[in-house]
């Protein structure tokens, strides 16, 4: 595992430092350029569906398959097939430049009820803490995703790096 990933081991989510060290997570300059996948995979799990599914060969694992996935942002189109394919739901697609004020975060979603486009949500960070307001803009469900929906949420641009989940309004807290 990258650098021991002590924070992940202790808390269950990756720290900023642990994220920055991952070969699947592009730098801020790349994220600012536009739509790109972010692979928050930090452990040597024998697993490579992301590499197999990417139609642009933007993801490389190679052998042994415990190697961490690395992303070639120049090949990535942000199609999101990897979001659904990842058994760990560790992949997100960010679109920093979706509009002047907002970016989007696209994530795997396997719960009910499905949110609807236009629905207002409370966005959450990796630790489950509320970040702010968000709005669902698209919900994709296709056969190829094998029952994993992919939900795209519009958020204030600056929060694109931190938002990784959401709570629908009306849902209670913990």
């Amino acid at each position: 595992m990258i650098g021991g990933a002590a924070h992940l081991r202790r808390t269950g989510f990756l720290s900023e430092g642990e994220l920055a060290a991952l070969p699947g997570v592009p730098g801020l300059d790349v994220i600012r350029r536009g739509r790109v996948a972010v692979i928050e995979c930090a452990e040597a799990i024998p697993c490579n569906p992301c590499e197999t599914v990417c139609p642009k060969r933007a993801i490389t694992i190679g052998e042994p398959i415990t190697r961490l996935p690395s992303l070639d942002p120049s090949r990535c189109t942000g199609c999101g097939l990897c979001i659904a394919a990842c058994p760990g739901q560790a992949i997100f697609v960010l679109d920093y430049n979706w509009s002047d004020s907002e970016g989007t975060v696209e994530m795997a979603y396997e719960r009910l009820p499905l949110p609807s486009p236009g629905e207002a949500v409370v966005t959450l960070d990796r630790g489950g803490s509320p970040v702010g307001a968000g709005r669902v803009v698209k919900v994709r469900q296709v056969q190829a995703f094998d029952r994993t929906a992919v939900v795209r949420v519009a958020v204030p641009k600056g929060t694109v790096l931190g938002v990784r989940a959401f709570r629908m309004r009306g849902e209670g807290g913990r």
Partner: peptide
């Protein structure tokens, strides 16, 4: 420390568990 895979833990943490 958490014994299971980090990705399983991360799913729970971000969804509020």
């Amino acid at each position: 420390t958490i014994g299971g895979y980090g990705v399983h833990a991360a799913k729970l943490r971000r969804w509020g568990v």
